[in-house]
Amino acid sequence: DETGKFLVLSLYDYQEKSPREVTMKKGDILTLLNSTNKDWWKVEVNGRQGFVPAAYVKFL
């Protein structure tokens, strides 16, 4: 199980638009929880879990 094993870097600021999403700032290091959807990845940032656009992050 690779859940929570990968870190990704936020390339852009992102403001959550729904309760299922999370806000991140450019340069944030996020824990990747799920990347099965090619468009939206589930991450943990600042103690919160939610989705961010996959195009806004990259693997470290």
Rank of each mutant, 00 (worst) to 15 (best):
N46Q: 09
Y12F: 13
N34Y: 06
V43Y: 00
S10T: 08
V45L: 15
Q15P: 08
L32D: 00
T31K: 13
L11I: 12
K25W: 07
L60C: 11
W40L: 03
V45G: 06
P19A: 11
I29C: 07
D28I: 05
E44G: 05
E2Q: 14
S35C: 15
N37E: 10
G50V: 03
L7K: 11
L60V: 11
L60H: 08
D39I: 13
K17W: 04
D39K: 12
A54Y: 02
N34A: 09
Q15L: 12
V43C: 02
L32V: 12
Q49G: 06
T36W: 10
P53F: 05
E2I: 14
F59E: 09
S35D: 11
L33D: 00
V22W: 02
Y12R: 11
G27S: 03
L30D: 01
N37V: 04
N46M: 08
F59Q: 10
N34Q: 10
P53Q: 03
W41K: 01
L9W: 05
S18V: 04
T31D: 04
L7R: 09
E21I: 04
Y14D: 02
N46Y: 07
N46R: 10
I29G: 01
L9Y: 11
I29H: 05
T3M: 13
Y12V: 13
V8Y: 09
F51G: 01
N37R: 09
I29N: 02
D28M: 13
K17L: 09
Y12P: 01
T36E: 14
T23L: 03
G27M: 02
W41R: 00
W40R: 01
N46L: 07
F59C: 15
S10D: 02
K17Y: 05
K26T: 07
L11Y: 05
E2H: 15
Q15R: 08
T36G: 10
M24F: 06
V45R: 10
A54T: 05
V52M: 03
G27Q: 02
V43D: 00
S10I: 08
D28Q: 13
K42S: 07
E2F: 11
V45N: 10
P19E: 12
A54R: 11
K38L: 09
L9F: 08
L7W: 10
K5F: 13
K17T: 12
N37C: 10
D13W: 05
K42C: 15
V8D: 00
K38S: 12
Q49S: 11
L33V: 11
E44S: 09
I29A: 03
K42M: 15
L30I: 08
K25A: 09
V45S: 10
K17D: 06
N34R: 06
S35Q: 10
E21P: 03
G27F: 03
L32R: 01
A55D: 10
F51P: 00
L30H: 02
F59T: 09
L7V: 08
Q15H: 12
T36R: 11
P53H: 03
F59M: 14
T23N: 06
M24G: 00
V8T: 03
L32C: 08
Y14A: 02
T31R: 13
W41Q: 00
D13P: 05
Y14K: 01
N46G: 11
Q49T: 13
K38M: 09
K38V: 09
L7H: 10
P19H: 10
V22G: 01
L9D: 01
N37Q: 09
T23F: 04
G27P: 00
L11D: 03
S10H: 04
P53M: 03
K25Q: 10
N46H: 11
V22C: 06
F51Y: 15
D13H: 05
D39T: 12
D1S: 14
T31W: 12
S10N: 03
S18M: 08
W41I: 08
F51I: 06
S10C: 15
D39S: 10
N34P: 03
W40I: 02
F51N: 03
M24R: 00
Q49M: 10
D1W: 13
E2R: 14
K58G: 13
S35N: 13
K26L: 06
L11P: 01
N37G: 10
V52D: 00
Y14G: 02
V45H: 13
L7C: 12
G4L: 13
Q15M: 12
Y14I: 02
V57P: 00
T31F: 11
S35A: 14
I29W: 05
L60S: 05
E44H: 04
L7I: 09
D13R: 01
G4N: 13
V57M: 06
T23V: 04
A55Y: 10
T23R: 05
K25T: 09
W41D: 00
S10Q: 03
K42P: 01
K38A: 12
L32I: 07
F51K: 02
K5V: 13
T31H: 10
P19G: 09
K58A: 14
A55S: 14
S10A: 15
T31M: 12
L7T: 08
S18C: 10
P53I: 05
F6G: 12
L33P: 00
Y56N: 07
E44C: 10
F51D: 03
K5H: 13
V43T: 00
T3Y: 13
E44R: 06
A54M: 04
G47H: 05
W41L: 07
V57N: 00
G47I: 02
E2W: 08
V52W: 01
L32E: 00
L9N: 02
V8P: 00
E44A: 08
Y14E: 02
Y14Q: 01
A55H: 13
Y14H: 04
T36L: 09
S10W: 08
T3G: 14
G50M: 04
N46K: 09
T3A: 13
P19Q: 09
Q15A: 12
W40Q: 02
F59Y: 10
V45C: 08
L7G: 03
K38W: 06
T36F: 10
F6Y: 13
R20E: 12
D1H: 14
T3K: 14
S18P: 03
D28N: 06
N37S: 09
R48N: 07
Y56Q: 06
L33Q: 02
G50I: 03
M24T: 04
S18L: 08
A55L: 10
D1V: 14
D39R: 11
L30V: 08
G4Q: 14
L33M: 07
W41H: 02
K17P: 04
T31Y: 12
R20I: 12
D39V: 13
F59H: 10
M24I: 15
M24A: 02
L11W: 05
S35Y: 11
